[in-house]
Design a protein around this nucleic acid. Structure first.
Lengths: 143, 143
DNA sequence: TGTTTTCGTTACTTATAAAGTCACATATTC
DNA sequence: GAATATGTGACTTTATAAGTAACGAAAACA
């Protein structure tokens, strides 16, 4: 498959939503992400269901933050996206009968699971607000 | 893409090669892995170049171990496969100009890199021989 | 010498999942 | 009622490993 870029993309969107009070349309977000509004709506759906953003229809509608970014961890964002498949590497088969194949799968899965834990820990330690907290001044200069 | 199962597969093969003195053909390995001999030869090529196995042509030819399994770490096997793409998740773009997108990418990459380090550490701590060392008796019973 | 076996390699097809696209119903504002 | 937006279903495209086919080269065997 292609590389799944939903996590960085929605983080990017959340940071932008925090820069304005006005609703931002899927069309505008699509231009930011170089993609189209339908994909934006689908990708943002999980964040809406998680209560991180709200969407309103009609004139003047669009996406707005529904929660402060310092109360949303990256782990929660990842979970809101449906905890997408993290690894491109995996086991050879689900339940092999060969003992040697079982051993090979066990070792592979163990290393992957350890890596997944690290990934989750890292995401859990950081809020979306943290991503720019050390760059606030720099960012303000460029808005 | 499909899930990359080369690592568990070649580990499986190495463990089998350790069970016999005779060369094992790509055809026989293909039957073990439920795939075909061409794919086996391509996948094993990296292990041959790394000096972990040898291949001989002609009658009575095939694949044999060229090194003791207790001298090969899983990390070396992974490297011999060309260190395949580990993650299905990745950054949104290589060098975005938007500072907020840069921040989103940085955070995503940082979590992934930490996870990769854990993965490599895990693989580095284990030799191929370790995979079955605690199951030696059980495996002998089933051969 | 010639046939068989086996690897080594190239070229091509298939499978899979995210990305991307299109269309349209629904809801809201003007 | 017209215009603007989301929500969603159906479909196409893209990227990459897996899988397949074919054939030359090398080694063993008769």
């Amino acid at each position: 498959m292609r590389t799944d870029s939903r996590l960085p993309r929605v983080l990017h969107v959340l940071l932008h939503l925090d820069q304005t009070q006005d609703p931002v349309t899927s069309d505008q977000i699509g231009k930011m992400l170089n993609t189209n509004p339908s994909l934006v709506r689908r990708t943002m759906a999980g964040l809406r269901e998680a209560g991180f953003v709200g969407a309103t229809k009609g004139h003047g509608g669009g996406w707005v933050l529904a929660k402060s970014l310092d109360s949303i961890s990256l782990a929660e964002v990842y979970a809101a996206l449906g905890s997408p498949q993290l690894f491109a590497v995996g086991k050879s088969a689900d339940a092999p009968t060969c003992l040697l194949e079982q051993a090979a799968n066990r070792a592979t899965s163990a290393a992957l699971e350890a890596a997944r834990e690290t990934f989750q820990e890292q995401l859990g330690q950081v809020t979306v607000a943290d991503l720019v907290s050390h760059h606030a001044q720099e960012i303000r200069q460029h808005q």
